[in-house]
Simulated scan of single mutants.
Amino acid sequence: MARRKKIYEGKAKILYEGPEPGTLVQYFKDDATAFNAEKHDVIEGKGVLNNRLSEFFMTGLNTIGVPTHFIKRINMREQLIRSVEIIPLEVVVRNVAAGSMSKRLGIEEGTQLPRPIIEFYYKDDALGDPLVTEEHVIAFGWASQQDLDDIVALALRVNDFLSGVMLAVGIKLIDFKIEIGRIWEGDFMRLIVADEISPDSCRLWDIKTGQKLDKDVFRRDLGNLTDAYTEVARRLGVLPSNVTHATKPTLIN
């Protein structure tokens, strides 16, 4: 069995040293967390589904010219990705009021927004990933004004792509979160979509019934999370034929 060095472990994924310089192996765990990890469970098969769904979305983005860190899927739980310098922001695109926006602004969930609204959250679990403004981002050096312009452009292109894909299978894209990374090609730096795109990072509602097909099922105890994610995968035609646990690689310190 391959021996790999663990680079980083988050709430839902593990990053291992990749086979080539500038690459990493991203492993999708079955852990489900909510409310800044105050709620936690292990959901059989969740990592397999998120790996396949993120592959589907990232491949689609690459195909239409939106650059991502995704290179290829390795197996049921792992994918090969480009190593990037993550900008410490969660970029949230909202099409419909829901979740924290509804609570914060007193807007009823399900209210269609007049246009997509982009929000930035500073990535810091200890602080609860606080909402920040563009002024904060620039003042503290997390990104430049040009970076922010490029991030907004990327986020809106991702929104257009995901909205269309979901609409075609009877799902409404309520909102989603992405992360952006920097890569260097010689002296040239560019920004690419990183992390993952899956029902963990999107709000997805059935167009006809309003049924939630995302992590709100876990957050709000609305049913079986795997069933919800499986339904998304089934509609998109990416349902894995055998959802099982994959063995974790042996680690070295």
Rank of each mutant, 00 (worst) to 15 (best):
P88L: 13
S83A: 13
R73C: 00
Q211R: 13
D41P: 03
V92R: 11
V238S: 00
T250L: 13
D214C: 01
E119K: 03
E9S: 10
S102I: 11
A246H: 05
L89A: 14
G170F: 07
F57M: 09
L131D: 08
V93Q: 11
Q145I: 10
T68Q: 03
Y27V: 12
H136F: 15
R203T: 00
R82V: 14
E119R: 08
G237W: 00
S241P: 02
M58T: 03
I14D: 09
Q211H: 13
A233Q: 09
F70A: 04
K177H: 04
V93D: 11
I86H: 10
P130W: 14
Y8G: 02
A37G: 02
I7M: 12
I7T: 11
G141F: 13
A246P: 01
G47M: 09
K103L: 11
R73S: 00
E85H: 07
D41S: 12
V232Q: 00
I14A: 14
G18L: 09
R157G: 04
R235E: 03
P21C: 03
E134I: 07
F176D: 00
E90M: 10
I43W: 11
F140T: 05
G141K: 11
A37C: 06
G60Q: 06
K46I: 01
L236M: 04
E90D: 12
P88A: 12
L213E: 00
V93N: 09
F218P: 01
A2T: 11
S163D: 09
F161Y: 15
S83I: 03
M101R: 08
P240Y: 05
I180P: 08
L131V: 07
R52E: 02
I174R: 02
I87L: 14
V193T: 09
S198H: 14
R157P: 05
D175C: 07
D200H: 13
E20V: 06
F28E: 05
D125M: 09
V84W: 10
G223V: 05
M58W: 02
A98S: 15
G223C: 12
G141N: 13
E109C: 02
D30H: 12
F176P: 00
L154Y: 12
V92I: 15
L251I: 06
I14N: 07
L213P: 01
V137T: 10
G45A: 08
I7N: 06
F35R: 03
L204S: 05
F161T: 07
A168H: 05
I151T: 09
T247A: 11
N253H: 07
T133C: 10
H245C: 03
M1P: 04
G18H: 08
V243D: 01
L148E: 09
K11T: 07
